[in-house]
């Protein structure tokens, strides 16, 4: 049984990962947490039955592997601590929120896998099979959306999150398209706005990128959904190829559950994409294999988000390939 520690719990996925480990037999058990905010750390530890570490080094001594789920800006220092202790890392996306952070993480000696659970969604797994078969031909265009409600917490604070809807949600679609088709992004243009009264970051954003093969790829990463909306978080991609079209809904495995008052909720069924990703990560650690999703994969997807943010600042079409050079 691999002992897993959490470096940070500010990210909403901290509780999601703990629940995934507890709800499925993944060969690992979350045992401890470190968070820079002592009160938050204690509350999270108590709620989830975890031990408390007082610094990242102590956490690394208590566990076999770590998941970095802190505020985005803390990723480099936490990954550095894990690398120094020789602990394998699962790093929450994005890879970093500045080009400097990205470069630091790309050159980290840590055994590091990036958290892109969508690669494990059943529809994406099937799409990968179909596309590897080659019958669809080259990509012509892709329109993607990964929308949700305003996530709250540190996500709306630029000094902790590094940015808003572009930093949070672009990378999932950006990575999945690269994963499925092998494309690389060439340029990007984006429009973004801050429409809500909370936070100091963009809460709605739409980008249109081009690939090095002449296709276009667009992503709506807006936090535009009303809080409490059933199925508010979505993940959809429509892809046109030379010889056909493919549509993917990453969250299609859910039923509608109606309560006695008529209230509608969505009820997910089957093994979730987080469980699949964690199982793959744990297996790689157990067998001494390479990281399932290496840092460079996170870097390529994050480069699109960072270039889109720069496009919003400058109002110009921005080179994606140049962003990390």
């Amino acid at each position: 049984m691999i002992r897993v520690g959490l470096l940070g719990c500010a990210h909403v996925h901290a509780a999601v990962y703990v629940a995934a480990f507890r709800g499925a037999e993944l060969g690992a058990e979350p045992v401890a947490i470190y968070d820079g905010d002592a009160a938050r750390s204690a509350a999270f530890a108590q709620a989830n039955g975890l031990g408390i570490a007082h610094d990242p080094e102590e956490l690394c001594r208590m566990v076999d592997a770590v998941i970095v789920v802190a505020e985005h800006v803390h990723y480099p220092e936490l990954v550095a601590a894990a690398a120094a202790a020789g602990r394998p890392v699962l790093l929450e996306k994005p890879l970093g929120v500045t080009t400097a952070d990205c470069r630091l993480l790309l050159s980290s000696p840590a055994w590091l896998s990036v958290s892109f659970p969508v690669r494990y969604a059943p529809s994406v797994v099937r799409a990968k099979h179909v596309l590897d078969g080659g019958e669809l031909g080259a990509l012509v265009a892709m329109s993607g959306a990964n929308r949700g409600p305003y996530p709250g917490g540190f996500f709306g604070t630029k000094s902790l999150a590094g940015g808003g809807a572009l930093i949070d949600h672009v990378v999932h679609v950006a990575d999945t398209l690269r994963y499925l088709t092998g494309c690389e992004y060439s340029t990007v243009y984006a429009e973004a706005g801050h429409f809500r009264e909370v936070g100091d970051v963009e809460d709605c954003a739409q980008l249109v990128a081009t690939t090095t093969d002449g296709a276009w790829a667009s992503i709506d990463s807006s936090w535009s959904r009303p809080p409490g909306m059933p199925g508010a978080l979505d993940f959809e991609m429509t892809m046109w190829f030379e010889r056909g079209r493919l549509h993917i809904d990453g969250f299609a495995r859910r039923a509608m559950l109606v309560g006695p008052d008529g209230a509608i909720a969505f009820d997910d069924y089957g093994r979730g994409m987080n469980e699949e990703m964690l199982a793959d990560w744990i297996e790689a650690i157990s067998t001494g294999g390479p990281p399932p999703i290496p840092a460079i994969e996170g870097g390529k997807a994050t480069a699109l988000a960072l270039a889109a943010s720069r496009s919003v600042e400058t109002g110009e079409v921005t080179s994606v390939r140049g962003i990390l050079e």
């Binding site: 012509v140 265009a141 081009t210 276009w216 046109w240």
Partner: peptide
């Protein structure tokens, strides 16, 4: 801002 791909008559 706009992008277009695909052959004429079958563009996206």
């Amino acid at each position: 801002y706009a992008c277009q791909s695909g052959e004429s008559g079958h563009e996206v």
